[in-house]
């Protein structure tokens, strides 16, 4: 990329993407709770209301179902809304509009319309906000044909994938881990997109493939450093999109390393890891496996308030290191 690159936080990168989208296209606008003068619960919209005015940075009442529906209605009739949920957990209040309406409208109408809505979901645990403000519900939406579901892990991808989402004719759901908002990384200036539906190999390795999503990509990379010192060479695949999933990149990687560890924050069973595992089990990569596939996911419990319990609920770097060691040494 030729554009100058600077360090931005993940939140700043998203804000910049939204500003660029609004500058480029009159139809783009933002909606959400407290995204105006408050700047958003996580300061992602920040001062955008000062730049673009309250007509394009719209504070909604506390009405998730209605707000999501308004965004869907505006999208289907020609606008390009970016709708912010204050916490991803509140998607549960808007499931009707997301699942029954946004996802299906184009199909039900035989292709007569499309629904170019973008919805942003601050997700994940680690903030001490307990069971109703800490969930990772991406797999819920990943289960719905008609939606695209992405989980950018870096500031670079957060900006590029948001711009790709705005340009996309279909509904795109963006899950942003709250603990990533302050993380800094290189971000090119100006317009660029990062494709939806393409995984990225963050680290090349021979001994083991770790497929990770969102914040777990960083934990996997940390673990890989330690493991390298022990002579275990880890490949880290950042899935980036869970629907449509780039299974080919995972298959190719597993064929090379012959071992697969899936790491994600959502509840372990019936989630992203199951889908990745099945993709391998159903492909010719299955024959290359030297060990059973291992999944590290969230515990089978709501997120607890107590900080030690909370930490124990989701995979941490030592858990990844141990699982990788066991896998490579044949203990699994």
């Amino acid at each position: 990329m030729d554009q100058p690159v600077r360090e931005l936080s993940y939140a700043q990168a998203i804000q910049e993407a939204m500003a660029i989208a609004m500058e480029q296209d009159e139809r783009v606008f933002l909606m959400g709770e407290d995204i105006g003068v408050y700047g958003g619960a996580f300061q992602v919209t920040g001062d955008l209301v000062e730049r673009f005015g309250a007509d394009r940075v719209i504070d909604t009442p506390i009405s998730e179902l209605g707000g999501a529906g308004v965004a869907v209605g505006a999208a289907v009739t020609g606008l390009r809304p970016i709708f912010e949920f204050q916490f991803s957990d509140f998607a549960t209040l808007a499931m009707e509009q997301i699942v029954n309406q946004a996802a299906k409208m184009r199909y039900m109408l035989g292709g007569a319309v499309s629904v170019p809505v973008v919805m942003r979901f601050p997700a994940g645990s680690g903030t001490g906000a307990a069971a109703q403000h800490s969930q990772s519900l991406e797999a819920w939406l990943g289960h719905v044909p008609g939606l695209k579901v992405i989980q950018p892990a870096t500031p670079h991808d957060a900006k590029g994938m948001l711009l790709a989402a705005v340009a996309d004719p279909d509904p795109v759901m963006i899950f942003e881990h709250k603990l990533l908002y302050k993380m800094k990384g290189p971000v090119p200036e100006g317009y660029y997109t990062v494709p939806i539906g393409k995984a990225e190999i963050r680290r090349q390795g021979r001994d083991l493939t770790i497929v990770a999503t969102s914040i777990m990509v960083h934990k996997a990379l940390d673990a890989a450093e330690t493991l390298e010192a022990e002579g275990i060479d880890v490949e880290v695949v950042d899935l980036r999109t869970i629907r449509p999933m780039d299974t080919q990149t995972v298959i190719d990687s597993v064929k090379k390393t012959s071992r697969l560890l899936c790491v994600y924050e959502g509840v372990k069973t019936l989630g992203v890891g199951a889908e990745v595992s099945a993709a391998i089990a159903e492909s010719d990569a299955f024959d290359f496996l030297d060990a059973p596939i291992v999944r590290l996911g969230g515990a089978e419990t709501p997120i607890p308030y107590n900080p030690e319990l909370e930490k124990a609920t989701v995979p941490q770097v030592p858990d990844i290191i141990k699982a990788a060691r066991d896998l490579v040494s044949g203990r699994r």
């Binding site: 307990a130 607890p304 308030y305 107590n306």
Partner: peptide, 16 residues
Amino acid sequence: FGKTTGYCRGRGGSMH
């Protein structure tokens, strides 16, 4: 304080 003697045994906190 997230303690077992709390009303929610440390699982809920202020918001619950």
